[in-house]
Design a protein around this nucleic acid. Structure first.
Lengths: 141, 141
DNA sequence: TCCACTATTGCGATTGAATCTCAATCTCAA
DNA sequence: TTGAGATTGAGATTCAATCGCAATAGTGGA
């Protein structure tokens, strides 16, 4: 966590921005949780802890975190965004169960390799990718 | 096109639904265009041609088309949905240029294979997947 | 310490996609 | 021709996300 705060501070400084208590609270909230949060989750979590930050600030901070590369904005097929922190995680993809909504993370060297090769061939400079796999998990199939 | 209408009719019949002129107009609009359309594009195209269909009907018909498997709903990172027809297309992924917005389609047997294998291993019953690759195209890199 | 300047925040209004409601209209079989 | 059910359109509504702007906080210099 200290690590995350340091990294974020560094990023903020590089942009002439400050680590305010609101920004810190959002950062902590997202790094405290494993997995995927919605902006609204963060807002409610903070409210519960009496640390407050407005909806606008939560969204603004999330944008900063995404821009810094510390957080990834992911689409799990719900029509709105989820966020997950990246520090210490390796890149992974998501399987989403259409029945129970469970999200299973997985990573696959093969896929990453194929993708890189494809981009090389197409002369496309890859910056990020996102793979969503929809279907039914072991328990729901 | 006749082919598409037949397929859609068959699907509609199987659900005790009818091929109305509004549904037909939406179908034609999406099958006339190559590539990815937004719901709003379809609405405007129809307006221009004096065939009218309300926004609600466009969305409702798109849902039917997606459900029938003739159309795919894709996320190109714009925060709202795009639609592309599938008939006669093989499955493909999207590379999206962050500068010019160009969308490049590609397909990769390797990726498909890896994905299937991963699902087998996890006992996840795959129904669909979507891979978005973000970066810069040859002209913009 | 005080002041002034700027960055930041929060509130509430706004946007924009998508969905819903419901009365009016259409379709088709009896 | 009639009636039941399917379908449509207009406008209201929802919901995530963003914006505008006045109020506030934080910082550096006098």
């Amino acid at each position: 966590m200290t690590r995350a705060i340091q990294t974020f501070t560094k990023y903020l400084n590089s942009k002439d921005l400050k680590l305010t208590k609101e920004r810190k609270a959002v950062l902590q909230e997202i790094f405290l949780h494993k997995g995927h949060l919605e902006a609204e989750d963060i807002l409610h979590s903070l409210r519960r802890k009496k640390k407050r930050a407005s909806r606008a600030t939560v969204y603004r901070t999330l944008d900063l975190l995404v821009d810094s590369g510390m957080v990834r904005k992911v689409d799990l097929g719900h029509g709105h965004s989820h966020y997950e922190h990246v520090l210490g995680h390796t890149h992974h993809e998501h399987m989403i169960c259409l029945k129970c909504g469970k999200v299973i993370e997985f990573s696959d060297k093969e896929i990453e390799r194929s993708l890189k090769q494809m981009c090389k061939k197409t002369e496309f400079k890859l910056t990020s990718h996102h793979l969503q796999v929809f279907g039914y998990c072991r328990d729901c199939r």
